[in-house]
Design a protein around this nucleic acid. Structure first.
Lengths: 197, 197
DNA sequence: AGGAACATACCGACCAGTATGTATATCGAT
DNA sequence: ATCGATATACATACTGGTCGGTATGTTCCT
């Protein structure tokens, strides 16, 4: 078996276990069972449980963020608000009921680990900053195109959008109900519309 | 020492340990050290770690919610939007920097436990529903008084407000920065204003 | 021959939970 | 009023199990 394959299988198993149980309660044994390898393999590729967690964040979760939000928003367009709404709708659609009950992987890890581990906090912080920056740029671009109201502060608005997104996911996760996600998403869509000219 | 006192000391220590580490990673030994009692006392009052967690939710955290949001909003007034803004501002003011890094106790527990423990989920769900219902009633009242726009759906709006609140707290917690909370809070205040007539 | 890629066996630490002991308060009977 | 009896309110000591981590193989490719 190729080294990259085993490493990837481990990362994938770790991502799912962490997504289900949280990092601290994620069991290495469970990850190894899921991956179908033994502890020797794990510690060959990752120096510690913490290093494994960092890798999940930097490689698996980071990829999700990129494909769902960063890459689509990076495409130049003449209507950033529609672009944002598309991202939101697409993200909502691809969520299965099971995913809703588990919540946003990035937010989960950030909430659990940022108060107790600097390494996690720094990494989640970088990802959030990237996210905010990308949305902020899209809004600025929209302002130049005359599609977004000039009065709004792009950075402040980007923060508010992401906060609302994560809050929306949190409420739906706790309610274990996709209807909550949709209802809350409607609120976001309305808000996004209110930014337009 | 009175029985109620010891129980209360335990609940308080448990609340803080759980707020810092999360429920699953909260150590009973650490709680006992903080409370200054021994395991015998704990298991005299609580049947299990889980029962202790439930009690923290139902007694400690529930009280916080009541004094910060439910009771103030239950007072009849002629301007619910100002009332909501006051709640938000007061809640923000009383948060110390340390509290921000720890996040909202209710949201923390809900996020961590609702996917893996029905008992926690049911209890957090009840509290969120109470919260939503209280805000929704206030908005309805505002509509009757002509202070809140008739077009908005009170329930949907209440959900959006709470989601935004929790998202705001989450972003500030991860950023470990009160400025983020204030900036995000400004977004909420603007949104609340937009609900008025 | 030597290193990369794993597997197996084992370790001390910590965990939630339990069994047992003990001091004190309460209370009915005398 | 006082003396057991019983229950309450804890403290102490211990248990089995799980945890992350490590030390030591073993296999295979170069």
């Amino acid at each position: 078996m190729q080294p990259d394959t085993t490493r990837q299988v481990l990362l994938n198993a770790a991502f799912h276990e962490i997504h289900h149980k949280g990092f601290q309660s994620a069991s290495l044994t469970a990850i190894l069972d899921k991956a179908g390898v033994t502890k020797g393999a794990l510690y060959h590729y990752f120096g510690s449980k913490r290093a494994l967690g960092y890798a999940v964040l930097e490689e698996v979760i980071s990829d999700h963020l990129r494909t769902l939000w960063l890459d689509p928003l990076a495409e130049t367009t003449d209507d950033p608000i529609t672009q944002l709404k598309d991202c939101l709708i697409k993200a909502g659609e691809q969520l299965k009921d099971r995913d809703i009950r588990l919540g946003c992987p990035l937010n989960n890890l950030a909430q659990e680990m940022s108060p107790i581990d600097q390494g996690f906090r720094e990494r989640t912080d970088v990802m959030y900053k990237l996210w905010l920056q990308t949305i902020s740029s899209a809004l600025q671009n929209g302002q130049q195109l005359g599609k977004v109201r000039k009065e709004i502060d792009p950075e402040e608005t980007a923060l508010f959008i992401v906060a609302t997104l994560e809050g929306c996911m949190s409420m739906a996760k706790n309610a274990q109900d996709k209807a909550v996600l949709l209802q809350c998403g409607k609120g976001i869509l309305n808000y996004l519309d209110s930014l337009g000219t």
